[in-house]
Amino acid sequence: MKIAVAGKGGSGKTTISGTIARSLARKGHPVLALDCDTNPMLGVSLGVGPEETDLLVAARQALDAGDLEHETSPDGIIETFGTSAPDEVRLVVVSRIDRANPGCP
C-alpha cells in the first residue's frame, strides 16, 4: 500500500499521516513514513518528539554533504539516514530547507 497525504497548510496533513502510519504498523504492516515537506514535522506526529524532530538529518542534505561515495540504493538510504519511530515505523526525512539560498531543494 502506498499513500500520499496532501492539503492546505494547517489542515492536519501531518497529524493524519503520522497517525495512519502508526495505525498500519500496529496492524502488522512494515511502514516507511516519508516526510517530503521542506519544513519537515512528521516526526512530531509520529511521536519522535519535537526537539528530536528538529535535529533529524534529511537524506538529501546528508547525501550532498561530504566527499564519501554515497548510498545508491533506496534500502541503503532508508537504513543509513532513517530514524526509528514508535510502533516500528521507519521515518525518512527527504529534504529540508534550513538556510537562505539553499540551491535546488
Partner: peptide, 27 residues
C-alpha cells in the same frame, strides 16, 4: 506561502520586518 521556501529563496527582498506568525503548537 507556508513554510521556509520563499524566505530562503528571497521572495521578499523589500521586507525590513519579517513577521513570523506562530500559534501555540510545537509544529
Amino acid at each position: 506561502p507556508a513554510g521556509p521556501r520563499q524566505a530562503a529563496f528571497d521572495w521578499a527582498p523589500y521586507a525590513k520586518f519579517f513577521i513570523v506568525v506562530v500559534e501555540p503548537t510545537w509544529q
